[in-house]
Amino acid sequence: MTIYKIMTADTADAFRRAGSFAGAEIDLADGYIHFSTATQAADTLARHFAGRDGLVLVSVDEDALPQPLKWEPARGGQLFPHLYAALPWSAVVGVDPLPVGADGVHQLPGVVSGAVSGTVV
Rank of each mutant, 00 (worst) to 15 (best):
T11W: 04
I26P: 07
P66H: 06
A12V: 05
S117Y: 02
P97M: 03
G94I: 00
D30M: 14
V105Q: 12
P97T: 05
F15N: 13
H48T: 06
Q67C: 10
P97D: 07
G114N: 13
L65E: 08
P68D: 05
Q107V: 06
D53F: 00
G110R: 09
G110N: 02
H48Q: 06
K5M: 00
R47M: 03
G77T: 13
L87P: 08
R75K: 11
P68T: 06
R75D: 11
L98H: 07
H48D: 03
V95A: 10
S117N: 08
A9L: 15
L45Q: 04
V121Q: 07
G110K: 05
V58Y: 00
A74Q: 10
A29Q: 15
G104S: 13
H34P: 01
V112K: 04
R75P: 03
P97W: 02
D30H: 15
H48G: 04
V105H: 10
L65N: 09
F15D: 10
A14I: 07
H82K: 15
V116Y: 02
A14H: 11
V120F: 04
A74D: 09
L65S: 10
T2N: 14
Y32K: 09
W89F: 12
Q67A: 14
I26K: 15
A14F: 00
W89V: 08
K70A: 06
D53T: 10
V56G: 01
L69C: 13
G76D: 11
T8W: 04
G31W: 14
T2A: 12
D27I: 14
V58H: 01
T2W: 07
P97G: 05
A41W: 03
A22Y: 04
W89G: 08
G19N: 14
G54S: 10
V58T: 07
P88W: 02
L69R: 12
F80P: 01
L87R: 09
A12R: 03
V105F: 08
A18T: 15
V56L: 01
R17A: 15
G76S: 08
V121K: 11
G77P: 12
E62N: 03
D61A: 05
F80I: 05
V56T: 01
D13F: 11
H48N: 07
L69K: 12
A115L: 10
A102E: 13
S117I: 01
F15T: 11
T39P: 11
V60T: 00
D43I: 04
G101I: 05
S117G: 06
F21K: 12
G114Q: 14
T37C: 08
K5D: 00
G19E: 11
A24F: 04
D13V: 12
G118I: 06
G54T: 09
A46C: 12
R75N: 12
D30N: 15
H48E: 04
P68H: 04
S59Q: 00
W89T: 08
I6K: 06
R47V: 03
L28G: 14
A41R: 05
F15Q: 12
A38L: 06
L108R: 02
G31Y: 10
P66N: 04
A102F: 06
L83I: 14
A64K: 13
A22F: 01
S20F: 11
S90L: 07
P109G: 12
T44D: 10
G77V: 10
